[in-house]
């Protein structure tokens, strides 16, 4: 049996670590499944490979929430659900509440969630040559043009923070930062700052959301596997997830240190600024999200985040 596993990220990304760990674990389980591995996006971008997994063309992938296929997947972008890695593991990690929530959504798309892969807290960065370091929102952010991913919640979030949001595709981002078409970018985990370090002045740790991805396998494909092979695959996946969550925080912090060493100014928010930022988004972004995913899920999310 051959299993095609593809994702759209480079080999220093946590997806690669996950893939390699999984391949080894599968061998350790004595499975006969051969993994045909395609990293780097040679079969399409992440949303495209996600669709190919839904169709069973590429049975397994690691991908972010492509809300094009189900708007409820926007949930993965929701701000300030968890504060630190410990909480993140409880909520999103193995046996956390969110795996079940996501499984319920993705089952409708003929996908099974093998695990939630953490990539780290997403924050804001300013381009080289920008002197302002916005830390107190919304006052500091006035007039700063910030790139947001072209999704509704991205614009909502940074508008609430006081920025001028500029929706822009990822492919134009680097040049836009270099030439000053925009002043800043949002939703950036440290690995992406490392990739763009040459054009970044400051990395401001707003930690406004916890970026995580889905490790999925096509449900029909999985069900057609012989029972013992399926069992081996699932055990290999569990072992992989445990290891990935053990290492994820260190990888994220590793990139942050590399970013710091490369001369980018890394700025923490003061506790007051942080609670102000949270208050803004709970008041503006969360009701916005409720319109998409419904009150039931949002009540649960409020429960998780500990807000009333």
């Amino acid at each position: 049996e051959e299993l095609m596993l593809a994702h759209a990220y480079p080999t220093d990304h946590i997806f690669h670590l996950t893939s390699e760990t999984f391949t080894n674990q599968l061998k350790a389980q004595g499975s006969t499944i051969e993994v045909d591995y395609h990293p780097g996006g040679d079969l399409g971008d992440w949303a495209s490979i996600f669709e190919q997994s839904m169709e069973g063309v590429v049975p397994m992938t690691m991908s972010f929430g492509a809300s094009e296929y189900d708007p409820r997947l926007d949930l993965s972008w929701l701000s300030y659900v968890v504060d630190d890695w410990k909480e993140a593991r409880e909520v999103y990690g193995p046996n956390g509440k969110m795996t079940d929530v996501y499984n319920e959504i993705l089952n409708d798309l003929d996908l099974v969630v093998l695990g939630v892969i953490p990539t780290g807290f997403g924050s804001i960065a300013t381009r080289k040559g920008i002197d302002e370091v916005p830390t107190s929102f919304p006052n500091d952010a006035q007039g700063i043009k910030i790139r947001v991913p072209p999704i509704p919640i991205g614009i909502e979030r940074f508008k609430s923070f006081g920025f001028t949001p500029v929706p822009m595709p990822f492919s134009e981002l680097y040049t836009a930062l270099q030439l000053g078409t925009i002043d800043a970018r949002g939703t950036a985990p440290s690995v992406e700052i490392w990739q763009m370090r040459d054009v970044i002045e400051a990395y401001i740790l707003t930690k406004d959301y916890f970026e995580h991805a889905f490790w999925v396998v096509n449900k029909s494909w999985l069900e057609e596997l012989p029972a013992d092979e399926r069992q081996k695959l699932l055990s290999a996946a569990d072992a992989t997830m445990a290891k990935v969550w053990d290492e994820a925080q260190a990888i994220d912090e590793g990139f942050l240190n590399k970013v710091r060493d490369s001369g980018v100014k890394v700025v923490e928010l003061s506790p007051e600024d942080m609670s102000k930022a949270k208050k803004i988004l709970y008041a503006e972004e969360w009701p916005f999200m409720e319109k998409t995913v419904g009150p039931e899920i949002m009540t649960m999310m409020r429960d998780i985040a500990g807000i009333k």
Binding site: K145, P150, I155, P167, M168
Partner: peptide
């Protein structure tokens, strides 16, 4: 829209 109105059109890419 970006410069004069400072209000971007969300659906521009689509």
């Amino acid at each position: 829209m970006r410069y004069v109105l400072e209000s971007p059109f969300t659906g521009i890419e689509e």
